[in-house]
Design a binder for these strands. Sequence first.
DNA 1: CGCCCTTTTGAGGCATTTCAAACATTGTGG
DNA 2: CCACAATGTTTGAAATGCCTCAAAAGGGCG
Lengths: 249, 249
Amino acid sequence: MNGNVINFPPLSASCSSCRWTKFCVARVLDPENRAQVAKNMVCSGPLRRGAHVFRQGDDLKSLYVVRSGSVKCYIDSEDGCEQIVAFHFPGDLLGFDAIADGRHQSSAIALETTAVCSLPYHRLAQVAIEVPALWNEIMRAAASQVMEKQNHALLLGQKSAQARLAIFLLYMSNRFAARGCSRSEFNLSMSRQEIANYLAVAVETISRLFSDFQRRGILEVDRRYVKIVSLTALKDLALEGRVLDASNA
Amino acid sequence: MNGNVINFPPLSASCSSCRWTKFCVARVLDPENRAQVAKNMVCSGPLRRGAHVFRQGDDLKSLYVVRSGSVKCYIDSEDGCEQIVAFHFPGDLLGFDAIADGRHQSSAIALETTAVCSLPYHRLAQVAIEVPALWNEIMRAAASQVMEKQNHALLLGQKSAQARLAIFLLYMSNRFAARGCSRSEFNLSMSRQEIANYLAVAVETISRLFSDFQRRGILEVDRRYVKIVSLTALKDLALEGRVLDASNA
DNA sequence: CGCCCTTTTGAGGCATTTCAAACATTGTGG
DNA sequence: CCACAATGTTTGAAATGCCTCAAAAGGGCG
C-alpha cells in the first residue's frame, strides 16, 4: 500500500503485443505511426495495488492508457476526505484532468497489479497533427469522458441508492463483457467502501443492498465475487429513480 | 416558447466585432486563421427564449460558441422527465456531447435571447490540424468540460442542499465577474425550477433556502435579481458538506 | 493464533422530499 | 385594458430514505 511506483525494467511498449488495442486510441494508427508514438512511450512496469499513476498537483507529462488491471481516480478535498471520480479498465485513456491547466486535478492509483502505457502529451499532440485519425480518436476519448462524468452526475442526482448500485453493477458487467469476460460473473477489483464512495452513499447502505439483492435472488455475492442471477431484475431496478418532481424545468 | 430557430439573416460571423474573444477558442487564432474558420462559421441570428441550438438525437454538425445570452443543456430521460446538465454563457464552447458517437446526447436551448456561433466540426478539425494552438485550445475546452462535469458530480455527491445553492451562486458570481459584470449583483437567467433541477433538489427546498439566506442577511433577493451581501458567509456555506464518513476509500 | 481491517446487521435521527394550499406573475382573448 | 388561465413561487406540515452511531462477525496476514 505504499505509494511508490516499483521500477521494474519498462516493458516493451509495443502495441503489437497488446491484447487491448481495439479499445485503445492506438487502434487508428497504422504500424508506422504506432512506432512513432511508441518511440517515446513507456510502459510502466507492474504497478502494485496502491501505487500511483499520477498524483493531484503533478505537472501534466503524459496521458496514460490502462494496459492491464484497474485504476481509480480520486480527489482529495480540502477537508481531507477523498472522493472517487472514476474507475478505469484496460484500454481506457486517463489524464485529461491535467490538460485544462497543466496540473493533475486528481490522483490515479492502481486497484490491483496494473500496467499502464505512458503517452507523453506533447509528443502525442505532434503525432495527432500529422495523423488526423488520431486527432479524432483523442477528441472522441475526451468527449467520452465528458459523457461519462455527466452520467455519473445524473446517477448521483436522480437515482436512489438501490438504483445506483444496480447501475454500477450493470456498468461493471458491460465493461467485463466488452473485454471478452463473463457478463454475469466476475470479481470486483474495488472494496465496498470504494463502491460506496463512488456512488456517494454510506458503506452500510451498500452492504445492506448487496444483502437485499442476494435475498431477492437477483445476485449471488461472496465478498468481491458477484454473479448476476437476474439481469432483467437488475435492469428494472436501474430505471427506478428518486422521482423528485418529474414536472421540472 | 416554440422550439424553432428564428431565421434572421445570419449575423456577420466575424470575431473582430465580438466582445468575448478572450473567452473563446478563437483567442489563439491570428486574423488570417480567424478568417479561415469564420469562412464557414454561421452566427445564428437571435435565438429567442426556448429556441433550440441543437436537440438530443441530432447529428453532429458543429460545435457552438455562445456569443450573447445563455443556454441550458438538458437530457430527456426515458421516463419523460428532464435533467439539466449544464448552463453556458458567452465564450463557452458547446456540443462535445455529439463527438463520441456522432449524435447529440443532450439538447441545448436558449434561456433568454441568445446568439451563438456555429463552427462546423470537420472544418474546425481541419484548421486545428494546420494551427496547433487551436488544437490545443479545443483540447483544453474539452478537458475543462470534463472537469466541470466532475465538479457537478462532486457537488451532487457530497454537498448538502444549502451548500449546493451557495456553490451555485458563487459559480454565477464568478462567471459574471469574469465577464466584467458585478460580482455581487446580477439577474439570474434561469428559474427556481431550473436551479432546483440542476442542483438535484426539490423546488421547495431552493425556495426555502433563498428565504433563509435573505433572512440571515447573506443575500437580497427579488425574483431573479440577486445581491450577495456577504460573500464570505456564502463561501463558508459552500464548504459545508454532508460528511458521509470521511474515512472512506 | 491474535490483531486489524472490512463487512454486516440493527436502531434511532435528521435532512430533504412529498403533499397541500395560498400567493404572485405572466400571458391571452374578449 | 381587464378578467381569467396558466405557470412559477412561497410557506407549512407530515412522511421517508438514507445516514449516523454502535457493536458484532468474518477474513487476511504477520
